[in-house]
Each structure stands twice: as C-alpha cells, then as structure tokens.
C-alpha cells in the first residue's frame, strides 16, 4: 500500500494559495511576494491569492509613492489577470477593521468572511504566506 501522499504523479496540478498579509511599502514582502506569483504563473498551477490584515492595502486604489522614493508597483496587480491569476480573495474583517470597502480596491476581488477564508485555506495543497 502506498501512502496517500505518494499517489500523485508528475504533471499534476496543485492548488497554490498566496497569502498577502503585509502593507505594500515599509517592507519588501509585498513586492517580492508578487514576484513569486508572477513567476509561478508559468507553472500553470491552480492559483489563488488572499489579501488579509495589512495586506489589503496592497490593492488599495490611488497609491502614490512619489514622496517616499519607492516604486509604485500597484499597477502590477491589474496585470495578474493576464497571467491567469484571477482568483483574488479579500478578508471582509480586514477591510472593515481598516475602514475600507470593496470600492477602494483596484482589482476585482471576492470579499469573504474570515471563516470562509479559513475554509479556502483548508482546501489548498500549498500555502505560501508573505
């Protein structure tokens, strides 16, 4: 009898979830995790992204970084669709806690409750949290 984790052959498609929890500037986590998602798109896996905690600021409209000398990389989130990364989820509680609503976001997303996000995480094969 093989173990359950030995059943999967090569060429399989796994469910990858990228969890973005940090604000876009202040640290490099958001920028570099977006680089992971873009590179990973070439592997044609089943990709989802979650934005929660301060990560919801990553996709807030109207980012202007001129005064802090950092590159405004927020337009890249709009390009995700072109990479077939279309399942973007935002945690409702994180938005509400920050006084934000879906209208404040620069890409189409599905807003989900914390419980629903937990269930989504449960369905994944690989979760990379940044």
């Amino acid at each position: 009898m093989s173990e359950p984790w030995e059943d999967e052959g090569p060429g399989e498609i796994k469910k990858f979830l990228y969890v973005n929890r940090k604000s876009p500037y202040g640290t490099i986590y958001a920028l570099e995790s977006l680089e992971v998602v873009l590179i990973a798109a070439a592997f044609e896996q089943d990709v989802s992204m979650v934005f929660m905690d301060d990560g919801v600021y990553q996709i807030k409209k109207g980012q202007d970084t001129q005064q802090i000398g950092m590159k405004n990389f927020s337009p890249t989130y709009r390009a995700l669709e072109g990479y077939d990364v279309e399942k973007l989820y935002v945690e409702a509680e994180s938005l509400a806690e920050r006084g934000l609503s879906e209208d404040d976001l620069l890409v189409p997303v599905e807003v989900m409750s914390r419980d629903a996000i937990a269930r989504l995480m449960d369905e994944q094969d690989v979760i990379l949290s940044f």
């Binding site: 796994k14 990858f16 992971v36 990973a40 070439a42 592997f43 896996q45 990379l128």
Partner: peptide
C-alpha cells in the same frame, strides 16, 4: 523562484 514552485509541486508539504 521556479525552484520554490517546483518544490511545492514535488513535495508533500511546504513549510514557511
């Protein structure tokens, strides 16, 4: 970065 994704595909678990 492909090495990270490839490891995710090949391995049973990825720990961050």
């Amino acid at each position: 970065l492909g090495q990270l994704i490839e490891a995710g595909i090949q391995c049973d678990r990825v720990l961050v």
